[in-house]
Design a protein around this nucleic acid. Structure first.
Lengths: 145, 145
DNA sequence: TTTTATTCAGACAAAAATATCCGATTTTTT
DNA sequence: AAAAAATCGGATATTTTTGTCTGAATAAAA
């Protein structure tokens, strides 16, 4: 819809890791994919991408897994996660798929979609991991099913 | 992004047909796909779906093609086109892909995305074909490339 | 030092979305 | 009546997205 399946999994995984990291728990791929109900191997690829983008930290070896430093949570925004996985299309592409759509040569829905995209951008940029993780800790929101 | 490729083609095709219908011109599949720069046979499928949904009128035979009665243009909204092709997912599905996301059990981005979806819904429902077609007639917007 | 539990990387597979082809049907024109 | 130009519908093909498998690398535990 707004995000690819990969991105949905990526966001859910990141939030889950954040919640656990707040309690100093490092989590494994198996645990993550069970808790957020996502395909294990596919999720592995996404976590790798998030790690390469410095959004999560991966640790190899027997007690390894994934974690997020608490100090980073304020800085990591939803926007950064989306950009890492889906790229910037949501912010820039024409709603009707026109390559040359622009202010000078706008498509028929250009103005309206610009407003919508701006609203999405503001939302994603102003939502950080702390907010997302604490809303779950507080029982105000959920990640399951 | 917001819409599938099919839907983008469908919207562009509908607008093009509307513009031509305003000048009492019935247009063929070949002309449409050339003018909106879309794959011919694929576009044919989409036009069939739009015709079945009474958004456009298809006429068979040698002088056949597609048209939209002028009187319908005020009533046909962007929303109807999107619903006919992509369904209602844009209005209803959880931003994070959670099946059970709801007011009672919201995902961490539920509130924000509800606002965004409402904005999109309002935009699509308040934009009709007359508006889209006339913006092109007036040279205020474009469909090419 | 060996075993175990983990991530990593690349190849592979399945499903969904996008795109093409072709024969049948329809209707106008010749 | 035949030919021409169009849509329709179903089968097929291609591409992209989603998902799986397997062996190597890593690091802690036994």
């Amino acid at each position: 819809m707004f995000f690819s399946k990969s991105c949905e999994y990526g966001i859910r995984a990141t939030i889950y890791i954040a919640v656990q990291s707040l309690q100093d728990k490092r989590v494994s791929l198996v645990e993550i994919s069970e808790k957020i109900d996502s395909p294990k191997s596919f999720t592995a690829k996404i976590l790798q991408k998030l790690a390469r983008n410095k959004i999560i930290v991966s640790v190899k070896g027997q007690t390894g897994g994934y974690e997020i430093p608490k100090d980073d949570m304020e800085k990591i925004t939803l926007s950064q996660i989306v950009l890492a996985i889906d790229g910037s299309g949501l912010y820039s592409l024409c709603g009707l798929g026109l390559k040359k759509c622009s202010e000078k040569q706008p498509c028929p829905v250009h103005k309206d979609f610009k407003l919508i995209r701006e609203k999405i951008r503001k939302t994603l940029e102003s939502t950080n991991l702390s907010m997302l993780a604490s809303s779950i800790d507080d029982g105000l929101s959920y990640l399951k099913i």
